[in-house]
């Protein structure tokens, strides 16, 4: 075991894993996190806590992780390289591990242009690939990147994000390979709607034997309405929502679209379970945590296994 995190244990035991995500609030109110935690608890093996996603300032990811832990949930710390240089990143990794966070997701972070502070100076001292390498080096070799010995190595199950649908498609699989080489134990994918393209991606990944080297958690997001589908398709970079998907939810009357979205999400998970090399799902029910139990249960993934 690299980290002895619950997520790592569940995957190691061969179970189909489930993760979800919680966006911390835009304020200091811990109750908001606790309320979300109550909705997520019992439905997942670990829960991502986002790190100032879309460059909008929120409660820190580490604080969110600690609040989840207090509620008995296993947190997964998201860490972006946009706002911190390598000194701060290393320090936060040590702090997170000391506080008992065992799962880590290394990300670049959205450009600051999209948030409330577009005039902010971005850091990008290192990139997400190099953060993977840094975290792995600290964990496995017990040293800082400078070579100095650590007084206690951080323990993390290390993850990366991958987007099978982003441009250019030609480097999607080489990029996954690079992330594995850099230190990823698991990856979580961008939301999948285009199953055909995703299957093609998995085929190419298998040609390199990659699903045997890394746990791939397939990302899904239930659609609340046809409007949300159209908005995401238009506004979110690298989001591939085929016309057929939009039409299917759009064919429902407005008040039934949310239920349809959940039904479609469950179908998608059922289909993903059948794909060789998919180790689990990452359910991003954005500000819709109350539907998590219905989705995960509907896909036959409850109760979550307890692995010792």
């Amino acid at each position: 075991m690299k980290s002895a995190s619950n997520l790592e244990k569940v995957l190691a035991a061969g179970h189909f894993a489930v993760t979800a995500e919680c966006g911390p609030p835009r304020g200091a109110d811990p109750e908001i996190v606790r309320r979300k935690a109550a909705l997520v608890k019992g439905n997942v093996d670990a829960c991502n806590v986002t790190d100032n996603q879309t460059s909008v300032v929120r409660m820190s990811s580490l604080a969110g992780c600690m609040l989840l832990r207090e509620e008995g949930l296993e947190p997964l710390l998201q860490m972006v390289v946009r706002d911190r240089n390598r000194i701060a990143l290393q320090s936060d990794l040590l702090g997170a591990s000391a506080l008992g966070v065992r799962n880590l997701l290394c990300l670049s972070g959205d450009h600051q242009k999209f948030g409330d502070d577009p005039q902010a100076k971005n850091v990008f001292d290192i990139d997400s690939m190099q953060l993977l390498d840094l975290a792995r080096t600290m964990r496995d070799e017990g040293v800082f990147p400078s070579g100095r010995k650590l007084e206690g190595a951080p323990q993390f199950f290390i993850g990366a994000a991958v987007n099978p649908f982003a441009d250019p498609f030609a480097i999607r699989v080489p990029r996954l390979k690079l992330k594995i080489a850099a230190g990823a134990d698991f990856v979580q994918t961008q939301c999948i709607y285009n199953m055909e393209k995703f299957k093609k991606y998995m085929e190419l990944a298998w040609q390199e034997g990659l699903p045997e080297q890394v746990h791939i958690l397939a990302g899904v997001t239930p659609l609340k309405s046809v409007g949300m589908a159209k908005f995401m398709r238009r506004m979110v970079a690298g989001m591939d929502i085929p016309e057929a998907v939009v039409e299917r939810i759009g064919a429902e009357p407005k008040e039934k679209q949310a239920a349809k979205g959940i039904e479609m999400c469950i179908e998608l998970i059922e289909e993903l379970k059948e794909i060789k090399g998919i180790a689990g799902v990452h359910v991003m029910a954005i500000e819709w945590e109350e539907k998590l139990a219905e989705i995960v249960g509907g896909a036959g993934l409850l109760p979550r296994p307890v692995v010792e």
Binding site: D110, H111, M129
Partner: peptide
Amino acid sequence: KSLFHGPCGGS
């Protein structure tokens, strides 16, 4: 973002 292993998801 001055990435050394790009592109990011925003391409």
